[in-house]
Each structure stands twice: as structure tokens, then as C-alpha cells.
Design a protein around this nucleic acid. Sequence first.
DNA 1: CGGATTTGACCAGCGC
DNA 2: GCGCTGGTCAAATCCG
Length: 514
Amino acid sequence: MFRFPVSLGGQGDNLKQTQPSDEQHHRPIMDEVDFFRSEKRDDQNVITEETHRLHVKRENSRVDDDDDRSMGINTGLNLLTANTGSDESLVDDGLSVDMEEKRTKIENTQLREELKKSNEENQRLKEMLSQTTNNFNSLQMQLVAVMRQEEDHHHLATIESKDKDTNRHEAPEMVPRQFIDLGLPSAEVSSDERITSRSPQSLLEDSSSRQRAKRVLEIEESPENESNGWGNPSKVSKHNASSSNGNGNAIDQSAAEATMRKARVSVRARSEAPMLSDGCQWRKYGQKMAKGNPCPRAYYRCTMAVGCPVRKQVQRCADDRSILITTYEGNHNHPLPPAAMYMASTTTAAASMLLSGSTMSNQDGLMNPTNLFARTMLTCSSSMATISASAPFPTITLDLTESASDVNGPTNNNPLMQFAQRSGFAELNQSGLPQMMGQALYYNQQQSKFSGLHIPSQSLNAGESVNAAMPANPNFAAALAAAITSIINGSSNHQNGSSNSSNNNVTTSSGDRQ
DNA sequence: CGGATTTGACCAGCGC
DNA sequence: GCGCTGGTCAAATCCG
């Protein structure tokens, strides 16, 4: 504290030289305490400074007793120091001044001040973030509530006609759906906004049948079935065809959980490792030789918690064995370690987006802050993403193989990769594979809506397959959301939505692209 | 010795 | 109905 002049640009030497004349008055250091003036002072300035010093010292009772002896170097910062009487006695002596020690103390004081300020700033930011989050969630809640109200109003009016079309809402109807009408007014618009901003009517027309399907599932699928992560696709499709009746949100939510497990998130990335650590614990329970691939496919299930339904398949690409294809399915029923949260959320968001058409009313899809965060990430993701709904499972594939090659390069603008890097996913740098996968995959029984989406690598059924590859698109998720919105909007809309892909660089794929 | 892995058997769906 | 395929089970085996 007494050493401020020293810490302020090495003025100490000069000050020391000026001290001898004033040393008797314990004032030489007073000149050094002037933080705001660089010019030399005259005696009047010194007096003024002493006045300030005395004033400041009144605030610090700890040094009051040493006021005269301490040479008045108190700058107020002394309030936070732990100076002891012994320290000041050293100053009194004026003989054994431990410059280094005092400098250290001054620096400590400064650091404490900075730390205190940082903490205060941090607290302010936290409060701001909390408030912003609350506001956002509140708006989202209101929006969903409004949409639900409208949906309820229209539901009664359309229920009969929908019942007639229930069966037609199954897979065959949605097969030809294409990512044509992306209708993205702006790349900056969030995916959620796009999804929720579609016309209520279109939302209703889709949601009514979706809800019926979900209710059917709730009735016919027992909760314990959810533990069977991969489930039985055929049963699902059969359930789809069943009749149903609604029983409220709880049923919808339960049904959604029962159905969402079918959605998959597949990640393609280059890796030499047999299996990549993704933050979760897996146990291999099977291995099979898949058709058309000389490399065996390994089956893993999550063992972080008893009964966790999440499972994953690991298989090398037949064309390029350096590419590891990891497919996740299921919903963790346990807390994830922090390291696993981010990418898990990303995959959740991907799956949620994939299924958002059927989970519009599900807050997991819209309101979950984690998903929102992940969606934001996805929005900025430039990784190759492919939506696939080749029967029986809708799958969204994140192709990181290209990004992996230059993950550390200056041209890597894949936020997903960058995020993973910043998040400490060291292995990502080695393999290009995000480590955190396997979070909730929400899927609704209306998977048929995506049945027309197709993995490019797989054989395509002409007129029934669509893939949405979005290379190097900084707004991939937004475009994806818009594409899904287009799908959700119904067959009546998809035909007249052939225009405008806006500025999203979204490659819409349809029959002509296959 | 306990947990993880391997591997053949089994089951169900789907296409012919 | 039969065969193919994907997915799962469970006993055997391996490993620390």
C-alpha cells in the first residue's frame, strides 16, 4: 500500500531521490501517492495531498494510530490490505523497508480489488442472464399457451374429419414430403421462432393427428417398454394405425417419451479408436455383421444408471473405414456429467428438431433451456447434417468428417467443433468426434412424417426420399427447423412452397437431387 | 472374483 | 411360408 508509487510505472526511484529533503516530515511518499497527476508538485500540492490522505485514513481505522508515522501513504486501498503494525513499523524506521514485500502486498491489494470488481461484475452478469432467461422462457410459455389454445379451439371442429384421415396420416402420406418451402425470412431468426411462427392452422392440422397417435402409444405402450431403447419399430407402426382418444397433457408427454426413443442421432467422424468416449459409460452387449459392411456393428447400452434406455451403435463406414459412425438412440434417465451435457444437448436438439413437428406442444422441444442452447449451437453449425427417416427410424446425421480434417485449421468454422474444442473435448481434436452424445431423442409416433427423408448413402426410393444436406451452412439448424416446418405444414402446403430458400444456403433435396 | 466383453442363439419384422 | 436381416439375450470367456 505504501508502495503504490513503485507499482505505478517505476516511479519509486525518482521518488526516492526526492525523499531525502522531506524525509523528516514523513511526506516524501505523499508525492508518490498522487495517482492522478504526473507532474511534480509543489508544497501546496503536498499539503493538499496530506489533507486527502488524512481524509482517506479516517475511513481506515486500522491505521489511524499510525497516521503520523506511516508517512501518510494511505490511498484508501489500504482498506483491503492486511497490513500489520509491524509492517508500518518498518516504514517508521525508514531503514529496513522491504520493497519487494510491500510491492507484493500492493499487488495483492490490487488483485483483491480486481477480484472483488470481477465478482461484482460476474454477479451482475448472472443476474442479467437469469433475467433474460426468465423473460425468454416466459415468452416461450406464452407463445405455446396461445398456440395450444388455438389448437384446442380447432381441435373439436376438426376432430371428425381428422379421424377419417387418421390412417392416411401414416407413413405413406408423408413419404413424398420434401424440403422445398424453407421459407426462411431471415437467417437470423431462430429455429424455434420459425417452428412456432408457422400458421396456427397448419399447426393444428398436424398436431391433432399427432396427438391421437401419441395417445395411442400411451395406452398401448407400458412404461417399462421405454427401457428398451431401440424398441420395436413394427409395433410402433402398428400402434399408429390404432384409434385413440385424448386424455390430457400427461398422456401426451408419456406418449411422447414412449415414441421419441425411436429417433436417432448419428454422428460420422474420423477416428482410429474403436469407440470414442462421449462422457457416458457404455457396455457392449452385442455385435453383428451388418449387411453390406465388412466391419461389424457393435451395440452398446448406457450403464451410467440402472435401466438407462440409451443405446448406441458403433460401426465403421464401409467406404471409408477411418470414419466411425456412431448412432445414438434413447433418452438418458439420469443426470449426465457436465462434460457430457453439451454435446448430449446438441444431439437432443438435433433429435428434437427432427421431431419438433410432433412435439410442438412438448416443452422438451421448445422450452428446455438445454435444448435451446443446443439448438443455438446447431443453428451455427456448419457441419454436414442429413435428415433421414428411412424406415423405420428417423435419423439426423451430423457429418463431422470434413470438419475433423481441419478441425484445428484456421478455416474451421464449425461451431459445433469449436464448441467441443472450447469445452475441453480433447478427443474431439483427435478424432473429430464429439464426445457427448446420446441424450434424449424425442420422437413422436408420427415418424411417418419423415419417412420420406433419406440417408444419401442408402438406396433411395424415387419420389419418396428426401435428404437435406446443408454443407457449410452457418444456419444449418435454422434451415433444418424451417424444413421441418415445411414438412409439418402438411401436404397441402408443400406443393406451393417451391420458392425462396432465402439466404440460408440450404440445399433442398428432392427427387431431382437423388 | 466381479465386471466387461465375446459370441452364438434366439426373436421379430420384412420382403419375396 | 421361408429366408434374410437387425437387434437382443445370455452363457462363456476374458481381464484387472
